Simulated scan of single mutants.
Amino acid sequence: MKKMLLLPLCAALFASAATLTSCGNGGTTAQAPTTPAAQAKAAEDSVMARHDRLMGQSEQVVELAAKLQATPRPPRPLLAKLQAADQAMMTWMHQYQAPDSAAPAPQRLAYLQDQQQQLAAIEKQLTSALDSAKAAVGRMPAAATAAPTPAPGQ
Rank of each mutant, 00 (worst) to 15 (best):
T35E: 01
Q31C: 03
A40L: 05
G26E: 02
R108C: 05
T35K: 00
V47L: 06
D114V: 10
D114T: 15
T35W: 00
P150I: 04
A98P: 01
Q95W: 04
L7P: 02
K2Q: 11
S128P: 00
V62G: 00
Q60W: 04
G26D: 02
G24Y: 06
S22A: 12
A70V: 06
V62E: 13
K67N: 01
K3N: 04
G26N: 05
R139P: 00
M140Q: 15
S22P: 00
P104C: 07
A147W: 02
A80L: 13
S46H: 06
A151I: 07
D100N: 15
P33F: 00
A143W: 06
Q118I: 12
E63S: 15
T91H: 07
P36M: 02
A12N: 01
K41G: 00
D114I: 03
A129C: 09
A146M: 14
D131A: 15
A151E: 13
L82Q: 08
R73Y: 04
A17I: 11
A147T: 11
A37C: 02
A120C: 01
A142C: 02
A105P: 04
G27N: 05
N25V: 05
Q69K: 15
S22W: 13
A88S: 15
D52Y: 02
I122H: 03
A18V: 13
Q154D: 07
K41E: 09
P106F: 06
L13T: 08
A136F: 02
A30T: 06
P8A: 11
E63D: 14
T29M: 10
Q69T: 13
G138K: 10
A102Y: 00
P104S: 12
L20V: 10
L9T: 12
P75W: 01
L130N: 08
Q83T: 15
T145P: 03
L78D: 04
L79E: 08
A136V: 06
S128K: 09
E59Y: 11
A17Q: 11
L54C: 04
M93H: 08
G138C: 13
E44Y: 09
A110N: 09
P99T: 08
R76D: 10
M55S: 10
Q97K: 15
A136G: 03
M90E: 08
P150D: 06
V61G: 04
T145M: 10
I122T: 05
T35Q: 01
Q117E: 12
L68G: 09
A32N: 00
Q107W: 00
L119S: 05
Q118W: 02
I122V: 14
D100R: 07
A66M: 12
R53T: 12
Q97T: 14
G26I: 03
P8G: 10
S58M: 10
Q31D: 05
P36A: 04
Q39M: 05
T29Q: 07
A110T: 15
A103S: 14
L13A: 14
C10D: 00
C10E: 00
S101V: 13
A133F: 05
A40D: 03
D131P: 00
M55A: 10
L6Y: 14
A32S: 01
A12G: 07
L9G: 04
T35A: 01
A11F: 12
L112V: 08
T149Y: 00
Q125A: 15
Q116D: 10
R50C: 02
G138E: 10
S58L: 06
L112T: 07
D114S: 15
